[in-house]
Design a protein around this nucleic acid. Structure first.
Lengths: 147, 147
DNA sequence: TTTGTTGCAAAACGTTTGCAGCCTC
DNA sequence: GAGGCTGCAAACGTTTTGCAACAAA
């Protein structure tokens, strides 16, 4: 799927969500969504705020508020890696997230393993309605291995 | 394995770690280890601090310091569920942790699935030395399902 | 005796909240 | 025009840090 299409689809979903919940369609909210969908990696609220304020005036509080809305309509996903600030990423219809986190330098990378993904999706929970999966693998990256 | 044996083994491992790293064997450190190994569930630093101070005088800073040491010698494992305070648990030779987290009420429970565990352990990373695995499944628990 | 460790309090950090004014509906 | 949303700054809760006193080696 093209980058552009992804964003315009997200915009449409967001609009429908806002209307359904009687929330106002403010310029701030769409500006944040657009910036979020321009990222190709994880980002935190502070980074998003800094990246935006050159072109557009928003407050950090609004950034947090909007991210909360985007989480609710599943357009972004939130991750908490250790004690570092919460990381967000656009959702892209992928509800299985697999991450490698270096416990020495904090570097985060992603991987995909079909067998793991299938095993997770096959699991049924009797008293739990599962929506999203995150696998975090902690260890040492190549650079930090010998330290 | 008996509860008692688990703790005495942990104590032995901790002693060896402290000696190897030229750290002092203080009463505070052993008192914290003992309390940690008495838990059967997850706990946070604040809870541990409160549970201890009736019988033993320690500061919250020492609790954090000691937990950090216990993490380093792999006697405890740390989890970060959303924005809530970091949760710790004793390690018990289990490096694959599988959690269900309700995104509505925040309730955390554990499960084990052999197929998932095997798929995870079978995965080889060319540039990463994996040490610990945490799978978080987000969704709604039975009570919150209909809300 | 030396110096790592402690308790305490204050600081740091990410995130949330209160409020007056603004702007969508 | 009404009330949800914004920016700002202050508040919050968890975790870290600085420092003087203490105690393990």
């Amino acid at each position: 799927m093209k980058e552009e299409n992804t964003y315009s689809l997200a915009k449409q979903i967001f609009t429908e969500y806002l209307e359904a919940n009687r929330c106002r369609k403010t310029v701030e909210r769409y500006a944040i969504l657009e910036r979020v969908y321009a990222y190709r990696t994880h980002f935190d609220a502070e980074t998003l705020f800094n990246d935006m304020k050159d072109n557009f005036r928003v407050s950090l509080a609004t950034v947090y508020n909007t991210l909360e809305l985007l989480l609710k309509c599943k357009l972004v996903v939130k991750h908490q890696f250790g004690t570092q600030p919460a990381q967000y990423e656009k959702a892209c219809n992928n509800n299985v997230h697999q991450h490698l986190i270096c416990t020495n330098c904090g570097k985060i990378s992603e991987f995909t393993d079909k067998r793991i993904k299938e095993a997770i999706l096959a699991k049924k929970f009797p008293n739990f309605q599962a929506a999203q999966y995150s696998l975090y693998v902690y260890g040492r990256c190549k650079k930090c291995r010998r330290k």
